[in-house]
Design a protein around this nucleic acid. Structure first.
Lengths: 339, 339
DNA sequence: ATATTTTAGGAAAACATTTTCACAAAAAGG
DNA sequence: CCTTTTTGTGAAAATGTTTTCCTAAAATAT
């Protein structure tokens, strides 16, 4: 039915090997022959059959993006889609297509994953942190398919990962607070088990400590990750004998609750209590005054993950363990201007 | 290197055809042979090579999801990711994998799309409304690959699409308003060119009209899709000689602006001005009192799109032009209770 | 002018499966 | 007991490229 390389060869009066060589830009083809083949391709509207190419070359030019992809995923992982878009873009620029896969609940997920890998449906794998099953790292390593975790899996030394530098983001927060000459700074985070939250908190505490400031325990607030709880915790902070001069909010949703509490108490921002948050998406645009944000370019994180994976495809031994994209401080009106 | 069907055949003492038949659940294999083959497969950890299967069968079991996938896509198309997840899930349940593809800006997008289709990289295509290039419908139809638009492309009669019933959603809004005995109802929408906004507005106006109510022109407000403009427009509405008794907001971002204006004017919701919005994600949770929402299950839209595409794969002649998932009214505290 | 190297292009194998067809053996029918 | 049908299995073709050799001709060196 469809026009094949054979038809092109016939039309151009050459062999199929020659056509293939033209298609793949080999250098041992004379300009005239090349032109003749090109012409035949154009005339017959030939496009290589991707299935046959995959088969013959032994590579699909597909990359698997492995993650949790539940209903309302965007609620729970607002950054994932942007990471995905960044990775897809970079891969597409290098001739790769991104495939979406989630580990299903039903079957034995380990077996599913093993089969997925050994079916060689993809040349490489990106694993989003939202997706983890028991023994996953081992299965992936045994599968021999180059792969990179997006988000630090916190495991062995042979595992490749790329992540946001949350610790550094925390340090940036501390640094900015100190540059504004705030010493009594509170921190409102997600629950204590959350990986990202803990890294940011540690970075923040470390940064403050480095300059000789120690944050008292009652200034460190863990929440249930809801706006309401951030509101409550902020009220408690304001009710302390010595309320904080500034508040760092670990994400932009918590910030909404905190701002509400400050508003209700008629506290001026930043004159009475200054305010700094992490992450811009999706809620930071709703906050007034314009918040100072320590932001992460998550699209770029996706891009970098793809770049690294592409390198690993060329050199499977490559060990990738790095922080992509620096946290970026965006000065808003909710902290003092820096000198 | 990898274990092939030949190894399995050898191990089980049968031919490769027999192994293939076992793998594909043909019925002409005796139970004993079948068991022997299964055992060999298990023993050798054999997994079919997906590339070879694709090649031999002439189908990849891949579905292309075609859309705009820019940086910060989630800002501009908050529903897309959920649609994507729904479609992926349904396809995965039927053995298909979803591939992500965006039409690039650089090259001639038409040519790119043609090549993409004729390379037969996928068995079917889902096209998200966010992605449209000149002549796309024609290229897709000529490409012969079964495809379905998610979102009404508003074109010819041979085009398959599945969409949200925005008109009906608008009618629901009108109906609810009338059930609450509000007759003076204003509508705040996105800009007049926006497809979804216009459909919802038309449905709303039509619904009101059906019961004999005609919305005056100055109750119909188009915005630049920003929260700020919704705020301004709402203030203007409140400043009218005869301000509306209720406001319908075409999406949840606009609602934030409108609520702000009502708050500032110390207007009680719903006692003085009632309030209804479309769409819950991502901002509706931030509004107090709990808004009455006309919501759409966009994940389900994705699922339905996949269901239809799967049907179309079996029967390529199938014409799909339908509205998936009914709009759902969720009564909040921002309109009166219904009788 | 001859020997050597380089170049351009073709023949054929390889890739791992599915699928068609043929053919025994077994079962059923007369 | 012989013919016909059914059943289970295997041989071989087909899928559309890439890639490895191989060879003839052309170019270069001697």
């Amino acid at each position: 039915m469809a026009v094949t390389i054979r038809d092109v060869a016939l039309e151009a009066g050459v062999s199929t090997s020659t056509v293939s060589k033209v298609l793949n830009h080999w250098d041992s083809i004379s300009p005239e022959t090349c032109a003749r083949v090109q012409e035949a391709i154009r005339k017959l509207h030939y496009t290589p059959n991707a299935r046959a190419v995959s088969f013959a070359r032994g590579s699909t030019k597909n990359i698997l993006f492995l993650s949790s992809l539940q209903k309302e995923e965007a609620y729970h992982n607002p950054h994932m889609f942007d990471i995905l878009c960044g990775a897809r873009r970079e891969l597409a620029d290098h001739g790769y297509t991104l495939m979406l896969e989630a580990v299903p609940e039903k079957r034995l997920p380990g077996e599913y994953l093993k089969d997925l890998i050994s079916s060689r449906i993809a040349d490489g794998i990106l694993i989003h942190g939202s997706c983890n099953i028991p023994g996953m790292a081992k299965i992936l390593l045994e599968g021999k398919t180059p792969h990179i975790y997006i988000g630090h899996p916190g495991l062995g030394s042979r595992i490749c990962w790329i992540d946001i530098n949350n610790g550094l983001a925390g340090e940036f927060a501390a640094q900015h607070m100190l540059e504004c000459h705030y010493e009594r700074v509170a921190f409102i985070g997600e629950n204590a088990e959350d990986h990202i939250s803990r890294q940011r908190l540690n970075g923040f505490l470390g940064g403050m400590y480095e300059y000789g400031y120690r944050i008292p325990d009652n200034y460190i607030r863990h929440t249930d990750a809801s706006r309401e709880d951030a509101y409550r915790q902020t009220r408690e902070l304001l009710g302390l004998k010595e309320p904080p001069r500034a508040i760092v909010c670990e994400n932009n949703l918590l910030a909404l609750g905190a701002v509400k509490a400050l508003r209700e108490a008629d506290i001026r921002i930043p004159e009475e209590v200054a305010f700094l948050i992490f992450d811009s998406y999706p809620y930071s645009g709703l906050i007034e005054p314009v918040p100072t944000i320590i932001d992460i370019d998550v699209y770029e994180l996706g891009v970098q993950a793809a770049v690294m994976l592409l390198r690993k495809l060329e050199n499977p031994e490559l060990l990738v363990q790095s922080y992509a994209t620096l946290p970026l401080l965006r000065q808003g009106h909710s902290t003092c201007k820096m000198q």
